[in-house]
């Protein structure tokens, strides 16, 4: 196919991808509450007006906290799992990996309903009330952030040479010293990229959080959803623009950390639930 035609098709596709975020950004600096074509000016008043939107502000802080806690927990559980999958010479490695990545292909709302039901059953059976706390959200977000950490760290570990660790051992380093001084530092890029993806995935998640968020635990995406469903006001666009800026910053940062984002890293096939290429059997 001629390169020009391909380039034109790509330009159209990229324009489509830019359209929605651009609309939000343009509306966020609108001088009035109504959208104007052509715009009569620009104003930052809606950004200042965010201070009067307790639900959005509280949502922002809830999402930041939730993202941080989920990412921390995902690192604590995901890094050991990645080590086991790449260094453990485990039988059935592929199956374990598939199990760990499976939550990514579950419908978020259904998973949220399951977690909500479980929390209710737990409260009935033991009297432990988790409703209204961050716990169900943390558990649910942990589930969907672990895969990102495992994939990223495992890919990083696969590309480092295990011989380095053997040398450290033969030079007298204990298993823990080897782990913390050799293995983990060599997978640093994967760990940072995994943590970043985990945070971004948690921060932006909507479907899974919808049924679990209430009152003080309403996350930012849920707060935005409720706001845009009820009224049109550029304040929502202002806070949305902030998240758009954060997303672009995260993408640039990931690109810097792991070199040019390789398309193969993001999917050996399936967008999300695919094996990291590094873990695939050599074909």
């Amino acid at each position: 196919m001629p390169r020009i035609a391909l380039g034109a098709a790509a330009a159209v596709a990229y324009a489509v991808l830019l359209l929605a975020p651009l609309a939000v950004i343009v509306y966020s600096v609108s001088p009035g509450a109504a959208l104007e074509i052509p715009p009569s000016g620009a104003s930052l008043r809606w950004y200042a007006g965010l201070a009067d939107q307790p639900r959005l502000i509280s949502g922002l802080f809830t999402s930041l906290l939730l993202g941080a806690v989920a990412t921390g927990a995902a690192l604590v559980t995901g890094i050991p799992a990645a080590l086991a999958l790449t260094r453990g010479s485990l039988p059935g490695r592929e199956a374990f990996l598939a199990v760990l990545l499976s939550p990514l292909s579950l419908p978020g709302l259904v998973l949220g309903l399951g977690v909500l039901t479980s929390a209710a059953v737990l409260a009935n059976a033991t009297g432990i009330q988790t409703a209204g706390t961050l716990l169900p959200l943390v558990a649910a977000h942990l589930l969907i952030t672990i895969p990102w950490v495992v994939r990223s760290v495992a890919a990083s570990l696969e590309s480092t040479d295990p011989a380095l660790e053997d040398q450290a051992r033969s030079l007298g380093a204990g298993p823990f010293a080897t782990l913390f001084l050799v293995t983990l530092p060599s997978a640093r890029a994967g760990i940072v990229a995994g943590a970043l993806s985990a945070f971004v995935i948690s921060f932006g998640n909507f479907a899974l959080s919808l049924l679990l968020a209430s009152g003080r635990t309403v996350t930012l995406p849920v707060a935005i959803y409720e706001a845009v469903d009820r009224y049109q006001d550029p304040t929502v666009a202002a806070v949305s623009t902030l998240t758009i800026a954060a997303a672009v910053a995260a993408a640039v940062l990931t690109d810097r950390i792991s070199g040019p984002l390789k398309t193969r890293d993001s999917s050996s096939g399936s967008g999300r639930q695919a094996d990291p290429p590094a873990l695939e059997p050599n074909r």
Partner: peptide
């Protein structure tokens, strides 16, 4: 970057757009 950035934005924000 153009392909990956939208994936990092919340689906709610893009639907709002």
């Amino acid at each position: 970057l153009l392909i990956v950035s939208p994936l990092l934005m919340s689906v709610v924000v893009r639907a709002y757009g």
